[in-house]
């Protein structure tokens, strides 16, 4: 698998702030993992504490559908 490949990209575009660190979230590398499968993505992440934000529509959309596919593997 291409290490640089991202399955999904969200740019926070300055709309999100880390409540704890008080800094804007930035687009950064993250990995979704499920049942021993990994999917590199780019999501809004706090550059200080590393909090990764998964928005509701992503959790109930793409993430849920991939979960369902993997569950039947």
């Amino acid at each position: 698998m291409d290490e640089q490949k991202s399955y999904y990209v969200i740019d926070p575009e300055g709309k999100l702030t880390c409540h704890k660190c008080g800094v804007p979230l930035v687009k950064a590398n993250a990995v979704f993992g499920y049942l021993d499968n990994a999917f590199p993505v780019e999501l809004p992440v706090c550059p200080k504490c590393g909090f990764v934000y998964v928005p509701e529509d992503l959790a109930l959309g793409k993430v849920l559908s991939v979960e369902k596919v993997l569950e039947d593997k």
Binding site: A28, A30, F32, G33, Y34, V54, A59, L60, L64, E67
Partner: peptide
């Protein structure tokens, strides 16, 4: 005001 969930784990890399 809203709640949702997912089963996937998420980590930074």
């Amino acid at each position: 005001v809203r709640a949702y969930s997912h089963r996937m784990t998420i980590e930074t890399r």
